[in-house]
Design a protein around this nucleic acid. Structure first.
Length: 478
DNA sequence: ATGTGC
């Protein structure tokens, strides 16, 4: 382990005050001995830097998928007091409300085996993918504004889903604080033609089969069983969220100076939560978060339409299990040292993992906890878990979000050829569809840590519990 | 992540 880090438990480490100057609280992260060698010193320094920010509560936290990011580490969780704390775009990330949803089908893997390629090609035609991909639906700027205010509900009202889908989204797919006045014209222009598109990079749409169930009762509540085909959708707020982040970063860099906030890294640009600049970022971020929920809702709708057409199943036979945000800041109430406190919880490459009796856990999952969805990389297992009371106590109701890269995109492209990766996966029965082979090389399984190990860690710490493992059958990449 | 970069 790195010098200066203290071991607290089997999978828990502390970054003590003093690791970098001016820390207000210690850092804490969760990591197994297996994952320890891949820990980047830069990511730990970022975790310590976050601990210097005004109003941070208890700890600067990181999940086992910690790695180096813009300002805050990816895998980072930081809660700030609503009155004395700050809000920072670096604590959310450029892809605001990058997230993932899981939908079940009534089909078994055997039932789609004979025409898997066809169905994946059909979904590939129905869901625009890739950098700069454009939507098949055109919306006016007025509609875009309404969509940014209403989120997933906008999509459902326009015929892109079921009322029941909304209850199965974090926040019902809508952050109430959205105010379109905080979204620039440029951001709107970028977002307008991209609604219902998948994007690129690590975003994907994957056909999966439930390979193993670890918790029968929770699996029954979530509606999953062994052998069943599920569809996982991973994407975010596209160009709109990226532009919202860029615009507000510029403002908050100035604001940090004006409010005389001393920052060890310019990328931690922030403003008091109570300041006009901080509030404006929050409102704009909420718009982008709502855009992302509507986006995933529309992609799921397009997928359901294809499935309905190709198989003898109804639209209603494909319920949404859940939709989680991986990149967002939220106002939440948490018990801290026996006291109820209003906090702004930043989760950057981290998943909310609320326990059984928390608010915003759908009624049908109460007693279990919210579903937590952790995608693997292309060709590796994904996991469905549930949130826990331990997460509420230890991590402001948070857990990890995925595997985390081990190879840069450039390195991956140098080391592997997309066509080879595709052929290798096909040998294992996994059909990969993308516009370009280069996208496949960048996202090869070797580019990522195994998802199994991060899931082991969060299970060991108790901040979420595995419900089921899903294995890939076929995948669409941007 | 992103109309990949001042």
């Amino acid at each position: 382990m790195l010098k200066g880090i203290t071991r607290i438990g089997e999978c828990e480490w502390e970054v003590p005050i003093g690791y970098v100057p001016d820390m207000r609280v210690p850092g804490r992260f969760f990591l197994s001995d297996e994952l320890a060698p891949s820990l980047e010193e830069g990511a730990v320094r970022q975790l310590a830097h976050v601990a210097t920010m005004p109003g941070i509560v208890k700890y600067s936290l990181a999940m086992p998928d910690i790695h180096w990011g813009y300002g805050f580490p990816i895998g980072g969780v930081a809660a700030f007091d609503m009155e004395t704390g700050v809000i920072s775009p670096g604590g959310v990330g450029f892809d605001i409300n990058c997230g993932v949803r899981l939908m079940t089908t009534p089909l078994t893997a055997d039932e789609i085996a004979s025409n898997k390629r066809e169905v994946i090609e059909a979904v590939f035609r129905a869901v625009p993918t890739g950098v700069g991909s454009r939507s098949s639906v055109t919306i006016s700027s007025g509609e875009l504004d309404r969509m940014m205010v209403k989120g997933a509900a906008w999509a459902v009202e326009h015929g892109f889903g079921l009322e029941a889908d909304l209850a199965c989204c974090e926040e019902q797919g809508c952050m109430q604080q959205a105010d379109t006045a905080a979204v620039s014209g440029k951001a709107k222009t970028r977002g307008m033609p991209q609604l219902g598109t998948l994007g690129s990079g690590n975003h994907f749409l994957e056909f999966q089969v439930v390979a193993e169930v670890y918790d029968e009762a929770a699996a029954a509540a979530f509606g999953v069983e062994v052998g069943q085909v599920c569809i996982m959708i991973h994407c975010g707020s596209r160009g709109l969220g990226h532009q919202v982040c860029t615009d507000h970063l510029k403002v908050l860099e100035q604001a940090a100076r004006r409010y005389q906030i001393q920052l060890p890294d310019r990328q931690l640009a922030c403003a008091p939560l109570t300041s006009p600049e901080g509030e404006a970022y929050f409102k704009g971020m909420a718009c982008a978060a709502n855009y992302a929920w509507a986006n995933r809702q529309m992609i799921m709708h397009s997928t359901r339409k294809v499935m309905e057409k190709m198989y003898d199943i109804d639209y209603e036979d494909m319920p949404l299990v859940y939709d989680v945000a991986h990149n967002v800041a939220k106002r939440e109430e948490h018990m801290v040292d026996g006291r109820r406190r209003q906090l702004c919880v930043h989760r950057k490459g981290a998943t909310r993992a609320f326990g059984p009796d928390c608010h915003d856990v759908p009624e049908r999952y109460s007693g279990v906890g919210q579903p937590v969805i952790i995608p693997g990389s292309m060709g590796t297992s994904s996991y469905l878990l549930h949130g826990t009371e331990t997460a509420m106590v230890r991590t402001f109701g948070s857990t990890c979000h995925g595997a985390g890269r081990v190879l840069s995109r450039t390195k991956a492209k140098k080391m592997m050829r997309g066509q080879d990766v595709r052929a290798r996966l096909l040998k294992r029965g996994i059909y990969v569809r993308a516009h370009h082979d280069s996208a496949i090389a960048e996202e090869a399984p070797e580019s990522y840590k195994p998802s199994d190990e991060v899931v082991n860690v969060v299970n060991a710490v108790g901040i979420s519990r595995p419900v089921a493992r899903l294995e890939p059958l076929g995948v669409i990449k941007g």
